[in-house]
Design a protein around this nucleic acid. Structure first.
Lengths: 355, 355
DNA sequence: CGTTAGCACTCTCACCTGTAGAGTGCTAAC
DNA sequence: GTTAGCACTCTACAGGTGAGAGTGCTAACG
C-alpha cells in the first residue's frame, strides 16, 4: 500500500490542528502522546480511532515519529519546523512579562556592557531555557580616543576607546634603551588622538605613514599607532567577540538530558564557540529572527537542541545577537515571542545610545 | 569490641603506605580497591589477610569507608585530607610540563587580561580537571586616569583607569538642560585627572568636596567625580570580580558524575559564584595553597568536589587566585604541584608588570 | 465514504529471581 | 604478629513475567 507523501504540502485543517495538539502536548509533558490523550485533553470532536488514522498520515509525511510500536507519537524536527512556520512570529509576549522585562532593564546600570548580560539572563528565566547574548559588535571599528599610562619607563598601558563603545587595553613596550616619562606619553597620545580620531584601521594606517620618523615623539607615536592598527584589525576580524550565556541549568533539567552523555553533548555544544559564533554572525547579517531546529544544526553535538536567535542593533553600525537555546522539545511560540521582544528592547537601548 | 579511634594520630609506617596505596589506586581506577588488588599491584610484602586487618583499622580511624560488605575500600574525605597533609606541597611539577606551560604563556599577548584565562586553561589541561582563575584584584583601588568622551550633548562615556590595571566604563548623564561639548568634557577630565590621580575612593571624596559649585566646569567635574567615587567603591567592595573557568568537560567525564543529578550539582556549584568568591577571597588573604576536600566545603552542592587553590600577585597591592576544581577522587599531588607552579608563574608576571 | 467500536498484537517498564564474582571478617594454625 | 582457609554478604547481571499503554486492523455504522 503506497501512502502518498506530502513533505510540507498544505495539510488539511484538522490534520494541522492535531499536529499542533501533539506538539503542544509533547512540549509540555515530554512523554510520547497517544491518540486517547489527544481526544481527552483537546476537544477534537472525533474518536481516538480517527485521530489514529490521521496520526498515521502525519507520520507518513515525516512530521511525527514513533519510538516503538506501542508508544505514542513524538514530533520530528520536520514536524517542529512545520509548526514554527505555521505560527510564524506573530505571537506577542504577554504584557505582564513585557513589563517585567522592562522593569529589570530599568534597574540595571545604564551601560551597554550590562545590557547583553541582562538580556541573556532575562531570556533564560522567561523561557526556562538557556539564554544567549553577544555584545553589539561593529563592522568597521573607528578609533575614538587613545590614552597612554606609564607603568614604568619602558612599559605603558595603552587604552583604546572605539566609537562603537568597546574599550581595548594592551601593554606596549616603548623602547629598548631609554625611558619615557608620562608627559612624553601624553604628547604621544595627543598626536594619536589628533590624527587617528574617527579613523578605521585602514585610515589609521595611512595617517601613520605620514608621521616623521626622525622626531622622537612622532616616531613613538608611529610605533604605538601600529599597535593600535593591529588591535583594531583584530577586533574587526573577530567573528563574535564573546557569547554570554545564562541558565544552562534550565536545559540540564530537561528530562531528555537525564542520561549524562546527552547532557555532555549539549554542554560541549555550548563550548563550541566557533559554530555558535558563525551562526550568530549569519543571524546578524540576515536581520531577522531565525529558528534552527535539531538536525538543522550542522555539528553533531548540537542536533539535540534548538536555537531561536534574533539580531539587534543598527545595521551597518553595530549589531549583536540575542537568543535562546533549548531542547528541540521547546516552547517555540513563547521563545520566539520573548526573543523578538528582547531584541526589540535592545534596539531601543542601542538607538538611545547612538541618537 | 571497642577499637581505638585515632582520627589523625601518627599512623605507623605500614598503615600509611597502605593508605597511600589505596588512595592512589582508587584515584586512578575509580573502583573500590580490595585487599588482593593491593598486594598484587603494590609490593607490600604481606598477605591480603594482613592488609585486610590494616584496612579495617584505617576504616575504624575514619580514613576509609566501605560502600557495602563485599566491596573494596574507598577513601573518605578525611582519608584524602590525611593523604594531602602527608605529601605536603613538596612534589614539584615535572620539568617537561613546566616548560610547556612557560611556552604557552610566552605565546600569548602580553596583557594581564589574557593571563588569568590562560592560567585556567593550562591548569585544566594539565590536571584534566576544571581550571579556575580570577584576575588580580586590588584591595583599595587608586584612580590613575579619567577620560570623558561625548556621545551626544547630554550623555558621555566615562572611562576610568585604575592604577591596579582595571578599566571601568560607565555612561554618565551630564545635565538635564543644556548640552556639553567635547572641549568642555576635556576640561572636566583635566580637572579630575589633576585632582584625583593616585587617590582612593576615600581620598577622591575629600578632594571633590573642595570643588566650587558655582563654576560650571568644576560643578560638572564634581558630578562626574561622585560617579567615579561610586565606581571605585563598588569595585573595592566586589568580593571577586570575575571567576574564569575552563575544562568543565573534564570534570563531567569523571565516572562518579555519570548520574546526571550529581553532575547537575557540580555544575550549579560552579555557578555558585558567591561561595566561590568568598573562598577565593579567603585564599588571597591567607597567601598560601589551600586544599578543600569534599565535605569541607560548606555548600551542599560542592560536597562531591575538591578545590586546590593558590593566590598570586603582590599582597597589599593586587591579588588573584588560580586553582583547580575536580572530583574528591582527584590527583591531589599533581594538582597541588601544578597550581603551585602556575601561581608562581603568575607572580613573576605580575612582578614584571609592577616593577 | 468517513467514522467508530472492538480486539489482537507489540513493546516497554517495573519487578522478581537466581547465579557468578568479589571481597570481607573470623578462626585456627604457624 | 602473620597467614591460609572458609563461610558469609552483597552487587551486578541476565532472564523471565505481568501489567499497561498504544497501536493497526477489521467490521459495522450512519
Amino acid at each position: 500500500m503506497a501512502r502518498r507523501i506530502r513533505p510540507l504540502g498544505p495539510l488539511d485543517h484538522r490534520s494541522q490542528a492535531i499536529l499542533r495538539a501533539v506538539i503542544e502536548e509533547y512540549v509540555s509533558t515530554a512523554i510520547p502522546v497517544g491518540s486517547l490523550a489527544l481526544v481527552e485533553r483537546y476537544g477534537l470532536g472525533v474518536s481516538s480511532a480517527t485521530v489514529r488514522s490521521i496520526l498515521a498520515e502525519l507520520e507518513a509525511a515525516g512530521l511525527l515519529s514513533h519510538p516503538h510500536t506501542s508508544a505514542g507519537r513524538v514530533p520530528t524536527d520536520q514536524g517542529y519546523r512545520f509548526y514554527v512556520e505555521s505560527i510564524g512570529d506573530t505571537v506577542p509576549l504577554p504584557a505582564v512579562e513585557q513589563l517585567m522585562i522592562r522593569h529589570q532593564f530599568g534597574q540595571v546600570e545604564f551601560a551597554s556592557e550590562h545590557w547583553f548580560r541582562l538580556a541573556a539572563t532575562t531570556l533564560a528565566s522567561i523561557t526556562r531555557s538557556a539564554g544567549l547574548a553577544t555584545p553589539a559588535k561593529p563592522r568597521d571599528a573607528h578609533v575614538r580616543r587613545v590614552d597612554l599610562v606609564s607603568i614604568n619607563g619602558r612599559l605603558a598601558s595603552l587604552i583604546l576607546v572605539l566609537r562603537e563603545g568597546a574599550i581595548k587595553q594592551a601593554l606596549v613596550t616603548l623602547t629598548e634603551s631609554d625611558t619615557v616619562d608620562q608627559p612624553t606619553l601624553d604628547a604621544v597620545a595627543g598626536i594619536l588622538n589628533e590624527r587617528l580620531a574617527g579613523q578605521t584601521a585602514k585610515g589609521a594606517e595611512a595617517v601613520l605613514a605620514r608621521l616623521r620618523r626622525d622626531d622622537r615623539v612622532q616616531a613613538l607615536a608611529a610605533r604605538v599607532g601600529e599597535r593600535i592598527v593591529r588591535i583594531v584589525r583584530d577586533y574587526d576580524a573577530e567573528a563574535i567577540e564573546e557569547v554570554f550565556s545564562d541558565g544552562l541549568l534550565n536545559v540540564m533539567d530537561a528530562p531528555e538530558f537525564a542520561q549524562s552523555d546527552k547532557l555532555r553533548r549539549v554542554f560541549s555544544a555550548l563550548e563550541n564557540r566557533a559554530y555558535l559564533g558563525a551562526l550568530l554572525g549569519d543571524v546578524s547579517e540576515a536581520g531577522r529572527i531565525r529558528v534552527i531546529i535539531g538536525h538543522e544544526n550542522l555539528p553533531l553535538e548540537m542536533q539535540d537542541v534548538s536555537l531561536v536567535l534574533a539580531p539587534y542593533g543598527r545595521p551597518g553600525r553595530a549589531v549583536g545577537v540575542v537568543g535562546v537555546l533549548g531542547p528541540t522539545r521547546m516552547g517555540y511560540s513563547q521563545a520566539i515571542g520573548t526573543v523578538r521582544f528582547v531584541s526589540g528592547l535592545m534596539n531601543e537601548l542601542v538607538d538611545h545610545l547612538y541618537a
